[in-house]
Design a binder for these strands. Structure first.
Lengths: 104, 104
DNA sequence: CGTTAGGTATGATGCAGGTCGTACCTGGGA
DNA sequence: TCCCAGGTACGACCTGCATCATACCTAACG
């Protein structure tokens, strides 16, 4: 697991938001790729999921018609303890579940 | 403190190395800018320190003749607890972000 | 005072990355 | 069966960034 790749992946707002929402989900199950409200087009979203995959942060299961992602929580907690807490922390304090404005 | 800026700053090997060494220093004092062995020229090093400064990770004190940097340890630990541990962990385990000649 | 060493400012350059349009593929309805 | 919705692949565009050369600045030291 390469810290450089991980940090580069998490430097982008959209990607950080995806990981944060996955990390904040207590169920820790899969989530449809389309269920994330990202301010980008389809092709860009595909690109972001690829970057997260190659950084080792998520795994993606293909269903032919649609696909779902899930967080590599165990690997992350083992190699980078505390990282997910940082992301969920930003979710709660900053642009948390209650979005104060529709920026972006 | 912007997580995006912080992660973008730490995505670079040279910058991550600087912060990691500062974090690993128990004395927690200033350190001369030139004391870091980075595989880049002067101008590039100046650029890296600027990025780290603007991310809020370090402060830089100018001496006219030379300058020194110190880690904003308190701010970082308060806003991003656990982050410095990740960096020092990389230093210890991997021997750190080594200077690979073909950078990246 | 002149030289030297450490930093900065500025501009150029090459490359990586974010964004999108388009074409294509797949499975599930109507 | 035909069409649509969700994803991917590919290419293009453009911005940002890491890097460097060069010129300049400041303090220390002979």
């Amino acid at each position: 697991m390469d810290l450089g790749k991980v940090f580069a992946a998490l430097a982008d707002d959209s990607r950080r938001r995806v990981v944060a929402e996955l990390a904040a989900d207590p169920g820790d199950g899969e989530r449809a790729c389309g269920s994330f409200e990202l301010p980008v087009k389809k092709a860009t979203r595909t690109h972001h999921f690829r970057v997260l995959r190659e950084a080792g942060l998520i795994v993606q299961r293909d269903h032919g018609n649609g696909s779902a992602v899930s967080l590599c929580r165990r690997d992350i907690e083992r190699h980078l303890p505390g990282l997910l807490a940082l992301l969920t922390g930003e979710l709660e304090s900053g642009g948390g579940p209650r979005r104060r404005d529709g920026v972006r």
